[in-house]
Simulated assay, not measured.
Amino acid sequence: MQSMLPGAPWLLAHKSMLTIYQPHKVSLHSNDYVMWKDVAGDVHALPNACPHMGAMLSEGWCEAAGDGSSRVVCPFHALAFDAQGRTVLPGSTKQTLPQLEPLELIVQGDFVWSYGGYAPKLPIPGVLNAIAAEYTFIGHTADRTVNTDLLSMLLNMHDYNHQNGTHRDLFRIAEVQFHRFIDQGYESHAFYDMPTAPYSILEKLRRPDLFLLPSTISAHLENHFPAMVIFHGESSLGKVAQCHLFVPEAENRTRTYILLFGQAKHPAFNLMGRAYLNFGQVVVDQDADILGKIYPNAPQKIKLNNEVGMDWVRRNFETFAVANVSAASKVSVSP
């Protein structure tokens, strides 16, 4: 369990990822939950296994109750559970005591966070609220589960040298010119440039989104350990904040997805939102692909320059896990 860093906050969803009255499965710390959003925009989550015979509640449906609240309905025997995990058994008109313990959520605007029921050891970073106030939300993409542990996922995201290898296709990154790393404990900032090989005009005309790729990609990565990396990019058309999120679903299974925000300088920027989302999808797919082609226990005999981001991850991961060995007991967390 310590490898999943209990006590850290995890962003389970942006409200736009949830359809009203549509059950949605999420996993955290080796537990599965059903999450749903009601017509008022309130979000709820219960353990995903029905307490009758273990059917997946996320495979059922939602319905409105007479008092205006909402319930998730088991697909097996149509038992309906409210947000507190109570139900009414067939042949009865009386509501049961809670049969399922709700997952405690902290909802800030459109952001749905959870500590998974563990005592908070890090505060929820306020940067997403600041970005949402300044930028326009473009959308989400690349929501997928990768069969790798959380540490390996984070090391990959903070391996600045892998850009011209893993991300060479499409972006044609020729080299990584690393400039600066600012270490602020559980927050850090990395700055580097990535010159790219050019596409021909004919290639760009065949695929207009390639016009968005600059000759040099200037990267500012804002890192909030362990759950988030934000890529800040800027062009003549506008600014983007591409937020990469990580959720430890199980010991060797990590979920990742992207929330994209933008700030237009030119009207054309608003027409290209889908293209920026597609680029994000490519980045995540390329990272997931390479993580499936690594021998995790192979000894590292070579150390490259500019592995400072990976060193930052290892240090924080080790100190956080050690500091929380005695804090693994679950407690209530109030929104």
Rank of each mutant, 00 (worst) to 15 (best):
W36N: 08
H158S: 13
L97S: 14
D82Q: 05
D209T: 00
C50M: 10
N156I: 10
L277Y: 03
V88N: 07
T196L: 11
P123Y: 03
D183W: 02
V72P: 08
A132L: 10
I217V: 08
N252E: 14
L150G: 07
P226W: 01
V282F: 01
G68Q: 10
F171L: 15
L128A: 06
M153W: 11
V176L: 06
G116V: 01
V72M: 11
D169A: 13
T96W: 01
A327W: 09
L79Q: 13
R207H: 04
F317K: 05
H266T: 02
Q108N: 10
F181A: 03
K265N: 04
I230V: 09
H52C: 11
A227V: 02
C50W: 09
L259Q: 00
N31Y: 07
N31F: 09
H158R: 12
N305I: 11
L213A: 03
P90L: 07
I173N: 10
T93E: 12
D311F: 08
K239W: 03
D169P: 05
L259D: 02
G262N: 01
P125L: 06
A174P: 09
V247N: 00
L245P: 01
I106F: 04
D149K: 11
R180W: 02
M56H: 14
L155C: 14
S332C: 08
I182V: 15
R180I: 00
P9Y: 03
A80K: 06
L128R: 12
V284I: 15
L151Q: 13
H44Q: 10
F211C: 04
M157F: 13
D82N: 15
P335K: 10
Q95K: 15
V112C: 07
K94N: 08
D110F: 02
G139P: 08
V88T: 15
G273R: 04
H266R: 02
K293H: 15
L202Y: 09
V229M: 11
A119Y: 05
V107I: 14
I294N: 12
L259N: 00
A119E: 14
A83T: 10
G91P: 00
V176K: 08
P248A: 00
V283W: 01
H232G: 06
R71M: 12
E203M: 05
K94E: 15
L11G: 00
I131W: 11
D67C: 08
L245H: 14
D67N: 15
M53C: 10
S188F: 03
H52A: 09
V284T: 14
S200I: 08
H244N: 15
Y160N: 12
L212W: 00
K301E: 14
Q163P: 03
V282C: 00
T145L: 13
Q22H: 11
P120I: 06
V247E: 02
G7W: 08
